Amino acid sequence: MLTQQRKQLILDKLRQDGRIVAASLSESLGLSEDTIRRDLRALAAAGLLQRVHGGALPASPAAANFAARSGLEISGKQAIARAASAMVQEGQVVFIDGGTSCQQLALHLPHALRATVVTHSPTIALALVDHPLVEVLLVGGRFYKHSVVAVGAAAVEAIGRVHADLFFMGASGISASVGLSTGDMEEALVKRAMMAHAAETWVLASAEKLNAASPYVIAACNEATGLIVENGTAEKATAAFAAQGLVIVRA
């Protein structure tokens, strides 16, 4: 089998099964695991999948820039945002993460809501300008342009001084086996800090992020309270998360 044929077969298998197990694939094709791993490395370098221990998962589409991501799954993100906004109660202190799903959440918060939003995203802060009763605390740090958020030690320290009722997280990869992941190490640490200082963590899980992975792990999935998914998301896609004890809210 030619190299290009093997690579296409791997990608077809990944689309079909949602993951690649190197040992099983090498056995079924009668090829060495070294050959399969070499192909996985090449496909990962091309951004076509994300290597994980023992094989590979689909690569998260969040590698695209912020403007491009804003147009992905927009109706699904809006539905998730409406469900998330209904969770926020009067007087609560809420962490809202950066990213396009969380931007939709900020835009969908009730105009008359009285609450405090703590965020490291200027995009979220701007989305709340016309909410007169929402106090916005904007966390500073090094500006990470890809996600339009502040990261680094200064951001983590500021977050550590807050005890929030809720944290709405955006993650570029949500995998029951790998965990919650994102594309930058410092961004992952900031998200983890917000998890540690919130009573509940809800992950905004639009369809393209489920069972995908990015390079840097934020936390195991079972450290979150639950996932907010689109109403049409198949039970099969969420079963492994429910088995880990996460609450699945269908928007």
Results as ranks from 00 to 15, higher is better:
Ala68Met: 09
Glu230Arg: 06
Leu49Val: 14
His131Val: 02
Gly71Glu: 11
Asp184Gly: 08
Leu210Cys: 04
Lys236Asp: 11
Gly141Lys: 09
Glu208Asn: 09
Met169Lys: 01
Ala251Arg: 09
Ser147Leu: 06
Arg142His: 10
Thr225Leu: 09
Arg69Ser: 11
Leu166Asn: 03
Ala84Phe: 00
Lys191Asp: 13
Pro61Trp: 01
Ala219Arg: 01
Ala224Arg: 09
Gly160Asp: 02
Ala219Cys: 10
Gly245Thr: 03
Leu166Ile: 10
Ala242Gln: 13
Leu204Ala: 07
Phe168Gly: 00
Val88Ala: 03
Ala64Ser: 14
Ala243Thr: 11
Pro58Val: 10
Gly55Ile: 14
Ala224Gln: 04
Glu208Ile: 09
Ala86Arg: 15
Leu11Ser: 02
Leu31Tyr: 08
Phe143Val: 06
Val134Lys: 06
Ala59Arg: 15
Ser177Pro: 07
Ile124Trp: 00
Leu204Gln: 03
Phe241Gln: 05
Gly173Ala: 03
Arg51Trp: 00
Ala176Tyr: 05
Ala67Gln: 12
Ala42Gln: 14
Val94Tyr: 02
Thr123Gly: 14
Gly179Pro: 11
Ala68Thr: 09
Pro61Leu: 15
Ser24Gly: 14
Leu11Lys: 00
Thr116Ser: 07
Arg41Asn: 12
Cys221Ile: 05
Asn65Leu: 09
Ala83Tyr: 00
Leu25Asp: 07
Ala127Ile: 01
Ala42Trp: 05
Val93Gly: 06
Asp165Leu: 08
Ala219Thr: 01
Leu133Arg: 14
Ser206His: 13
Ile20Glu: 06
Leu133Met: 10
Pro122Leu: 00
Gln104Phe: 06
Arg142Thr: 13
Asp34Asn: 13
Gly55Met: 10
Ala59Pro: 08
His108Ala: 15
Ala154Glu: 07
Val249Asn: 08
His111Tyr: 08
Asn231Phe: 08
Ala198Met: 09
Thr116Tyr: 02
Leu166Gly: 00
Val139Pro: 11
Ala240Cys: 03
Ala115Pro: 06
Gln103His: 14
Glu187Thr: 01
Ala46Gln: 15
Ser60Ile: 10
Ala176Glu: 08
Ala199Trp: 02
Gln8Asn: 11
Ala67His: 10
Asp34Ala: 14
Ala176Lys: 03
Asp97Phe: 03
Glu27Cys: 04
Val129Asp: 08
Ala199Asp: 11
Leu180Tyr: 05
Gly226Asp: 02
Thr3Ile: 08
Gly160His: 02
Gly98Arg: 09
Ile248Met: 06
Gly55Ser: 08
Met87Phe: 03
Asp97Thr: 04
Val229Gly: 00
Glu186Phe: 05
Leu109Thr: 04
Trp202Met: 04
Ala79Ile: 00
Glu208Gln: 13
Thr116Glu: 06
Gly173Gln: 02
Val178Ser: 09
Val117Gln: 01
Asn65Phe: 04
Phe167Glu: 00
Lys236Ile: 09
Ala106Leu: 07
Val134Trp: 05
Phe95Thr: 04
Val247Trp: 05
Ala242Leu: 07
Arg161Thr: 10
Thr3His: 09
Ile174Thr: 01
Ile228Ser: 02
Gly91Phe: 02
Arg142Ser: 11
Ala68Trp: 05
Ser101Ala: 15
Ala63Asp: 12
Ala115Lys: 01
